[in-house]
Amino acid sequence: MAKSANVYARIEPEIKEQAEKILSTLGIPASNAINMFYKQIILQRGLPFEGKIPDRTPTDISVLETEELHIELEKGYADRKAGRTKDAKTVFSDLHKDYGL
């Protein structure tokens, strides 16, 4: 099929530069990447990734005052006692999925 349709989009220059640098390393022109994205939308019958707002962001304990840290530790202890825990493999898998780490 001949490529005859144009897509015009305005994006942040830094985002464009970073993405095109990665695509260049992979040897994929931006137009091919956009075409691949559109094909995935068709195949998935929606966005090919989960578009959601996280319930909350992880707590950065390095910025907490001593009392705030104790409160967070108490929450963790209470969760442990109540059986609201996950094994490490599941936690790391969730972090990778939810935050792209």
Rank of each mutant, 00 (worst) to 15 (best):
P58W: 09
S31E: 15
M36C: 04
A19L: 15
I71R: 10
K39I: 01
K21F: 11
K52M: 08
I28Y: 08
I42R: 00
L101Q: 02
D94N: 04
P29H: 09
F37K: 00
L26Q: 11
K16H: 06
L43Y: 05
F92N: 13
I11E: 13
S31F: 11
E20Q: 15
E14N: 13
S24Y: 06
F92G: 00
I11C: 15
D55L: 12
N32G: 03
G27V: 00
L73M: 12
K86G: 00
V91W: 00
E17H: 10
D55H: 07
I61A: 09
V63Q: 14
T59C: 09
R56L: 06
T25R: 13
T85W: 06
I71W: 02
K3E: 08
L69M: 07
K3F: 07
G51E: 02
L64P: 01
S24H: 04
E74I: 01
E17W: 01
P58T: 09
I11N: 01
E74L: 13
L73T: 03
M1R: 10
Y38H: 00
K86H: 14
P13D: 07
G46F: 05
Y77T: 03
S24N: 13
R10P: 00
S93W: 07
Q40G: 02
G100I: 06
E17V: 02
D94V: 02
A78S: 12
E74S: 14
A88I: 11
N6Q: 11
I53Q: 10
A78C: 01
A9W: 05
A88D: 12
L23S: 02
M1V: 10
K52E: 14
H70G: 06
I71T: 12
S4R: 12
I42M: 03
V91T: 10
N6T: 09
E72S: 02
K21M: 07
K52T: 09
Q44C: 12
Y8S: 12
R80A: 13
E12K: 10
I34F: 13
V63R: 12
A5V: 10
A2R: 13
E20F: 04
V91R: 06
E20S: 04
V7W: 08
D94P: 00
L69I: 00
A82K: 11
E14G: 08
L43R: 09
D94S: 07
I15E: 11
V7T: 11
L69C: 04
P54R: 13
Y77I: 14
I34K: 01
K86W: 11
F49I: 03
I53N: 04
D79M: 03
N6E: 10
L95A: 15
T66H: 03
T57P: 00
P48T: 01
T59M: 14
L43F: 06
E74C: 06
K39R: 11
R84E: 10
P13Q: 03
K3P: 02
D60F: 10
E68V: 05
D98R: 14
F37Q: 05
P48V: 02
K16S: 07
L23A: 08
S31I: 02
K21Y: 10
A19M: 15
K89Y: 04
D79F: 04
